[in-house]
Nucleic acid binder design. Structure first.
Length: 602
DNA sequence: GACTGAAGCACC
DNA sequence: AAACGGTGCTTCAGTC
């Protein structure tokens, strides 16, 4: 047995490293003295679905004592870890859903068995303060939280250690996890500290969760939700490899075609705005739009975005737009999915159930689904319902605006939804503008936007924009009053509380954002509720992804209509007496076909 | 090579 | 009085 020692703010943490099977009884004796322990794993990478994925170390610990078990050494170690995981009453892990995948894939304990007894410090941290470091918050990563809540120096050392180890092995931070010697003392120290820090964070964070959040049962709720989304991650989404590869080839060809055009104007790299500005200046084209001011460029740089380029009506501009797009679409969506697929051609997204500062979920990794182009099925076609299944999408109708109507109690807005009137048209009529602009004004209100934003977005003059915003305020006075109430609360307390008792911090001086946070966070909770209710009804195996106000399903073909109807009924939810309806759309085999089906109806 | 900020673009 | 909220990914350009 190897012993390592570390100090956090003068308090010792002893790390015991099991080196042979003879050490295992001492480890199990340690565990038997505790009901709850911090837990973490070190693996060969993050791709838990890969065939060559291995768990290398498993670590357990209290705030002052940690044990490192080299599970990669043989079945006896894995068996001991399995026994211990099953015996412990509670586990504490940071981003525990990842460890649930690891344990399931490499040790064979189903997620369903461990999930009910796992506490996730990432979820607790979010309930305490959801802000990223960039937003002047504590952040959500273990290192960030360690720095904020425990000790600067420890965070730096632990964070920096893997980078140093990678240097020592003359490799990259990405590859080090596979290459580092199992008993490298630096690696063992890094590994042993993790469960100890998670354990300490748990003790600190639990009592910092707002009483109001606790009273609403948010802690348990978020844990349940995270486990359901982890099951979705595990299921993965079936990839149409042929289709994806064909699109890659197509887009590569397209990109080269347009790059050649750009080169004929002596632009080597269409992604370099510097080169583009030079080229257009050479060609005598006047540029004026600037990007927002920054440190290095106090006046902003000359903008080269789609808006500017398409306005130029120049063959170079056209080529740049098209080559940029072809390359981005291929790399971000098709290649990402192809590279992330498992042996069964399934792709596993990261569904981060509690991510944004407003609590919205995010989806990242191999399926950044929240950003898939929505115009047609070009990208979504690559995802297939299972064999014998069809794709189905169920989305909430007007979720955020209904949520706003329900809580603001504005009579006109409420009436519009209760009696099936066209809200966008009502706003448009009040201002004497086309419906499209009325719609923009409605959404802009949810975001806290004013006339300037409307002017920019709708390409209208200032006078018209002001008129529309004024008309909105006059038509829905309850919305303004509600927004002011939330802003006042934020000004006094620094926070806005959502209907589920979640505390969301608002930046000083930006109190108007309280309304958006309330709506955005509240709407997310309606989707979260739907996910949990669907899980109880046995629907999780059919759910592929949540995307804000939409859930995508794969249903057996013969039962699809009935299952879709039932799922939509489960999802629908009344807030403050106003129903947020859910509408099901069934397509063919591919996700993209749902969009086509929808189009053909209208 | 790693990291960061900015710009750009894809969404709700 | 006046305010466009929230994501993820890629690339460039500059720094360490």
């Amino acid at each position: 047995m190897k012993q390592l020692a570390y100090r956090v703010k003068g308090q010792p943490i002893s790390i015991h490293v099991v080196e042979s099977e003879r050490d295992l009884p001492a480890f199990e004796e340690f565990v038997s003295r505790h009901r709850i322990l911090g837990f973490d794993t070190e693996t060969t990478g993050l791709d838990w679905w890969a065939e060559d994925f291995r768990c290398r170390l498993a670590q357990f610990g209290t705030g002052s004592e940690a044990w490192v078990i080299p599970v990669d050494l043989g079945p006896a170690y894995a068996e001991a870890v399995r026994r211990v995981l099953r015996r412990l009453e509670w586990l504490v892990a940071h981003n525990g859903t990842y460890d649930l995948h690891v344990v399931e894939q490499t040790l064979g304990i189903p997620m369903e068995e461990l999930a009910p007894k796992m506490w996730d410090t990432r979820l607790l941290a979010h309930l305490v303060d959801p802000r990223a470091v960039k937003e002047r918050g504590p952040g959500l990563k273990l290192e960030e939280l360690t720095k904020f809540y425990i000790c600067d120096k420890t965070a730096e050392e632990v964070k920096g250690s893997m980078a140093l180890i990678a240097q020592k092995y003359k490799t990259t931070k990405e590859k080090i996890w596979k290459q580092v010697e199992l008993f490298d003392p630096d690696f063992l120290l890094y590994a042993g500290m993790d469960p100890a820090l998670a354990y300490r964070l748990f003790q600190i964070l639990y009592r910092l969760v707002p009483a109001r959040s606790k009273a609403h049962g948010l802690i348990g709720w978020e844990h349940e939700l995270a486990h359901v989304t982890a099951k979705m991650e595990r299921t993965g989404y079936l990839l149409d490899v042929e289709y994806a590869e064909a699109r890659c080839a197509e887009l590569t060809e397209e990109q080269h075609e347009w790059e050649a055009v750009a080169q004929s104007f002596e632009v080597e790299n269409p992604n370099s705005n510097q080169q583009l500005v030079e080229a257009f200046t050479r060609l005598g084209v006047k540029l004026s739009k600037r990007t927002k001011p920054s440190k290095n460029h106090p006046k902003g740089q000359l903008a080269m975005d789609d808006d500017v380029l398409s306005g130029l009506k120049h063959p170079l501009a056209d080529a740049v737009i098209k080559s940029r797009k072809a390359s981005k679409w291929r790399k971000t969506w098709f290649e990402r999915a192809l590279n992330g697929r498992d042996a069964n051609n399934r792709v596993h997204a990261s569904v981060n159930s509690l991510q944004a500062r407003t609590s919205r979920m995010s989806i990242s990794g191999s399926i950044p689904a929240q950003t898939f182009p929505s115009g047609d099925g070009y990208v979504r076609h690559m995802f297939l319902a299972d064999e014998g299944h069809v794709s189905c999408s169920i989305d909430f109708g007007n979720m955020e605006l209904r949520y706003l109507a329900a809580f603001s109690r504005d009579p006109t807005m409420l009436d519009a939804f209760l009696n099936g009137r066209d809200l966008h048209q009502i706003t448009a009529d009040a201002a004497g503008v086309p419906r499209k602009i009325g719609k923009m004004a409605n959404f802009l209100t949810v975001y806290g936007g004013g006339w300037a934003a409307l002017m920019e977005q709708a390409h209208i003059d200032e006078e018209t924009a002001r008129k529309v915003i004024d008309a909105f305020a006059a038509t829905y006075p309850g919305v303004g009053a509600f927004g002011r109430r939330l802003a006042d609360e934020a000004r006094k307390t620094g926070f806005v509380y959502t209907a589920t008792g979640r505390r969301l911090p608002v930046d000083p001086g930006k109190w108007f954002r309280a309304l958006n946070y309330f709506i955005q966070g509240g709407s997310r909770d309606v989707t979260a509720r739907a996910i949990l209710e669907l899980d109880k009804a046995g629907y999780t195996p059919y759910v592929r992804l949540p995307i804000h106000d939409e859930l995508v399903f794969s249903f057996p073909k013969k039962d699809a209509v009935e299952m879709a109807r039932e799922a939509a009924r489960i999802m629908e939810f009344p807030v403050q007496g106003l129903l947020i309806p859910a509408d099901a759309e069934i397509g063919g085999r591919s996700w993209g076909s749902v969009l086509e089906m929808e189009k053909s109806k209208h």
